[in-house]
Design a protein around this nucleic acid. Structure first.
Lengths: 373, 373
DNA sequence: TCATGGTGTGACAACGCTGTCCCGGTTACC
DNA sequence: GGTAACCGGGACAGCGTTGTCACACCATGA
């Protein structure tokens, strides 16, 4: 049997060099306490000298654990997923687990994945990123014989991690209300294939806050546009601006759209925030660049939390198999939201903050005013 | 030996059900031709009925191949890396290989990685992303007993994939020259930890093009700034604008900086491109957003090429172990470059430009001098 | 009829590790 | 001083595959 390149040193090699048995080397490598200090030292040195690394395949063959956590994602070219994975990686590594990624960009690959379930014997847990899975697909994952954690989606009866979109949208809307806005538009994101954008929840939070404040909802103020489509975005803006009673503020479900709105408005010489406030959601990298006020969620925290949840589920079979981790959002006031300009009156030369904000306006929103630099 | 959950059916289970030996099942699963059609059919059905999947651990234990390609990256939260991995994934999957990611965000993890080399026995090849590895670290990877492909860096004597930065920068500079610019500044990117930005090559291409065109190089026109640091970027802009003979165009080594330059310039009421052309490099997502003229490189192509190179090296031990794949760049003209405005005429009133500094003040030392904030 | 060769299949020994059992040597306790 | 409990360490049998070898079978040609 010539193949199987014998390049790598094995347990036996280390054992021989250290003058002990393979069992002892194994015990040492695994950090079991039943090894005397001097033997341990000898073994560790031998291992170091030989650059010995335990073979995961052999090890997992007997333990039944692969030492791998798999991730299913539609793409890696995404701010959210990238950040989440970047923080997930170290969490797993700290636990001695490796991160395996299944990138499933199109429908064909997706079908194939759920058909063959290649993760089946090759991972200890699976993290599913932002797919809007059909119930059938989820069911398929259920008989995968391993914990499956859903990220950024509310998977009933299954472990999942996501931010409180309702509360976030409510807080954002309150911020605008607090500044004095009453005509507040909401721009939904549509057509992002493969993604769940919590659209429903964010819209819900927006409506809740309006209703709390006694502002009547107006469906004309709710429009939708795909992200990255300048023309459609411009159309949406046009629609809003040409209403009989146009909004003084726009709350976009996603930063990418919000930034695009700002761009479009400014191009049309509608000053932001003087004539139109714009609020985003996510705290995308771009938001800081564009000085966009936004509701931040932390993909890094989500990734970390998901990793820890997965570790729990792997290590404790008795763990709650339907745990939902709901993370908070927070308002980051920047330069695209401000009080509305008094509609009837001529505008003052450089009015800073006219009317006092509503009582519940968070202190932080004031700080937003002086972020000009 | 109670653990090792016997959830999954094994070769033997399938063999029993099909009434053949395990060897035959193995042969069938691997598609070897020495199996008669009827036996093959029986085995395949049995396997299907049991949802049988070959255990990679067991298989690789004997074949010596892991079926895994590992990637080393400083972060996944990067436009370039994200895109590259997104296209790499499907390439590998098509070849039946899985993608394992080592995220090494900080120095501690990095040291640990090169110390322990956890990839050692757990992958068939390693792709290294944009680390500026020390020669010592590269040497460490050399005795990893597997092909190592370097991405976006010129690794001497080792397989690598990158774009032709020199040619790209030359083309970009020629574009500006072609528009009529003669005073062309170059903004380098500094201090991006863990990344190689091909700084040297791009600067070289810029200089080559200038020299071709008979334009004397002027070191005052070459400045540097870290990405994402608004203050330092503004300083760099100030330095350039206050030169006795300021540039009419700026070529930034990276789109992120270029976008920041445009932002800064416009804030200072310097019209882009009317009064200053700005050219980027990379074709970052942001570039399209900002309508930035840029030199595009395609991380997707790079990822794909790297994947295919890795496959070659895995499958053919005789393959050229020092192959360099050099990919082309291409100019994408957008809205931030234009012919220079005739210099002699008066400029409009609104322009607000600081007074020139003392004539002999070296540019960079000034930038370092003022430390507000 | 007997060698010859091909073809499909089964037996079996690895692969490198871990879990269990076992044993010799201490230490602790009456 | 005897016995029990403990503790460090070795032997060994798997884990689920694959590669090799051997073998039974059939067809072919002398």
């Amino acid at each position: 049997m010539p193949p199987a390149q014998r390049h790598h040193p094995t347990l036996a090699d280390v054992a021989q060099r250290a003058g002990v048995s393979a069992s002892t080397v194994s015990r040492t490598m695994r950090g079991l306490t039943t090894v005397s200090p001097d033997v341990r030292a000898r073994v560790e040195q031998a291992a170091r000298e030989l650059h010995f690394v335990v073979s995961r395949q052999a090890s997992s063959l007997v333990t039944g654990r692969t030492g791998v956590v798999a991730v299913l994602a539609p793409t890696l070219n995404s701010w959210f997923i990238g950040s989440a994975l970047s923080s997930l990686g170290p969490v797993l590594r700290a636990a001695g687990l490796d991160l395996l990624v299944y990138v499933i960009p199109d429908l064909a690959e997706r079908t194939d994945f759920f058909d063959r379930l290649p993760a089946r014997r090759n991972a200890d847990a699976l993290l599913v990123f932002s797919f809007d899975l059909s119930e059938e697909e989820s069911a398929r994952l259920d008989d995968l014989q391993m914990p499956v954690v859903y990220i950024s989606q509310h998977a009933k009866g299954r472990p999942s991690v996501y931010v409180d979109d309702v509360a976030g949208a409510r807080a954002g809307t309150r911020h605008l209300l607090g500044l004095g806005h009453r005509r507040i538009a909401f721009v939904q994101t549509t057509g992002a294939s493969g993604f769940t954008f919590s659209s429903h929840e964010r819209l819900l939070g927006y409506r809740q806050a309006l209703s709390e404040a006694g502002v009547a909802p107006d469906d004309d103020l709710v429009v939708a546009t795909p992200p990255g489509d300048k023309r459609r975005t411009a159309e949406a803006v046009g629609t809003l601006l040409s209403l009989r009673e146009p909004p003084t503020a726009i709350f976009a479900e996603q930063d990418e759209v919000a930034v695009s709105l700002v761009w479009t408005l400014r191009k049309a010489h509608v000053d932001v925030p003087a004539r139109m406030s714009v609020l985003g959601f996510d705290d995308h990298q771009m938001a800081e660049w564009s000085d966009l006020t936004t509701i931040a969620q932390s993909p890094a925290d989500i990734g970390r939390a998901a990793g820890e949840l997965a570790l729990d589920l792997i290590n404790d079979p008795e763990a709650d198999r339907a745990r939902h981790l709901v993370l908070p959002t927070r308002l980051i006031p920047r330069a695209t939201t401000a009080p509305p300009r008094p509609a009837a009156r001529d505008r003052p030369a450089e009015a800073a903050e006219p009317a006092g904000p509503a009582p519940d306006a968070p202190a932080r929103s004031r700080a937003g005013a002086d972020t000009y630099e």
